[in-house]
């Protein structure tokens, strides 16, 4: 027993010895936070001295094949476009605790990032409080349209009903059983928009088709989402779709039963290469590029952006692994065109 005590004590000593000098020098902060905060004025010249620095806080993981990953991928694309020397970003993932996210946002703000993205509608309240304290820093949050009238908050949203509508049109065309199943998390936000759009698309194309929707009450319950998919299949569905990160198992259920799948948020084709027809994918980089341009020009916020099919913030990515009949492809293209030029209007319930 004594040995154990000594072991603990020695560890403690070693540790405090290591810890002590570092504690005295809080300058050993972030590896990225060493240089002085880059401010807007330097921005107008073409070659920037300082890289543009972005921090993002998100409720799920960067590898969720859904909402979180869509933002991570977008930032990676921006980095490719602007070059590594001109753009860097850091992230806090899995910040599903709203309170922790608020602390993270505030902390990033004190470190002088150029843009801080709160990638979750539940963070709005926190941002409303933090943003006024950092008038030099630009914030963005989504998905919403509300900038709280603050000059340094951008808002962004995805008109998910558009992609949902296109997916719905295709689903209605491809279903043989005339039964289509949809799995959702809780009945709000982005998921609700997508699903309502999807339903509208199905009904507009094939009024006889029936859309069964199942909200499973959670963004994380993969087993229940999968069973919901199985239930849809047992109820006769031969085409399925679903929103949010817990549907990854449901896609497999569709594959097992030979049903088709329509994805949203990120490209989900890799999960079931033969049955994913198309995924509505968010390309946030379109609106991010615009935002960065504004910030470099001195406008720190006050505007809201929509990612939609017209501006390329939303893209229907067809899966090469699935042979979509030519007429269905034509219908999809026509629908996208119709939504873009305004001849198709989507009415939500």
């Amino acid at each position: 027993m004594k040995k154990f005590v000594w072991f603990v004590l020695t560890l403690a000593l070693v540790l405090s010895a290591c810890g002590a000098p570092a504690v005295e020098a809080p300058a050993a902060e972030a590896p990225v936070a060493t240089e002085a905060p880059a401010e807007a004025p330097a921005a107008t010249e073409a070659p920037m001295a300082e890289p543009f620095r972005v921090a993002v806080v998100m409720p799920s993981g960067i590898t969720d094949k859904a909402f979180g990953q869509s933002m991570y991928d977008a930032l990676t694309r921006i980095k490719d476009q602007m070059g590594e020397e001109n753009f860097e970003f850091v992230y806090s993932e899995n910040m599903f605790v709203v309170d922790d996210a608020a602390a993270a946002i505030r902390d990033y703000a004190t470190q002088g990032f150029d843009l801080i993205i709160a990638h979750g509608s539940q963070y709005g309240s926190s941002l409303q409080e933090i943003a006024p304290d950092f008038p030099e820093t630009s914030f963005a949050w989504g998905t919403t349209v509300d900038t709280f009238g603050q000059p340094n908050i951008f808002a962004y949203e995805a008109l998910s009903q558009e992609g949902g509508y296109v997916n719905g049109v295709l689903a209605a065309t491809l279903t043989k059983s005339k039964v289509i199943g949809v799995v959702g998390p809780i009945e709000t936000g982005d998921a609700k928009l997508y699903i309502d759009g999807f339903k509208a698309g199905v009904i507009a194309t094939n009024p006889d088709a029936q859309v069964n929707v199942n909200y499973i009450g959670s963004f994380s319950d993969i087993p229940l989402a999968s069973e919901a998919a199985t239930t849809h299949i047992a109820a006769g569905a031969d085409v399925l779709s679903g929103s949010a990160q817990m549907v990854v198992g449901a896609i497999g259920k569709a594959e097992e039963a030979g049903a088709l799948w329509f994805g949203t948020q990120s490209n989900q084709a890799s999960l079931a290469p033969t049955i994913v027809v198309a995924s509505q994918v968010y390309h946030w980089e379109v609106m991010l590029a615009e935002m960065i341009g504004l910030i470099q020009g001195g406008t720190l916020g006050g505007q809201s952006f929509s990612a939609d099919l017209a501006n390329g913030g939303q893209v229907i990515e067809f899966n090469d692994g699935y042979a979509l009949p030519a007429e269905a492809q034509a219908l999809a293209d026509e629908t996208i065109k119709g939504i873009v030029d305004g001849t198709i209007t989507i009415t939500l319930p």
Partner: peptide, 21 residues
């Protein structure tokens, strides 16, 4: 019961989804 509540939603029985869950 979990399966039953999934079926209830699939069959559009008018119960709020949260209550069903």
């Amino acid at each position: 019961i979990n399966s039953l509540q999934l079926w209830m939603q699939v069959l559009s029985i008018p119960v709020p989804s949260d209550i069903a869950v």
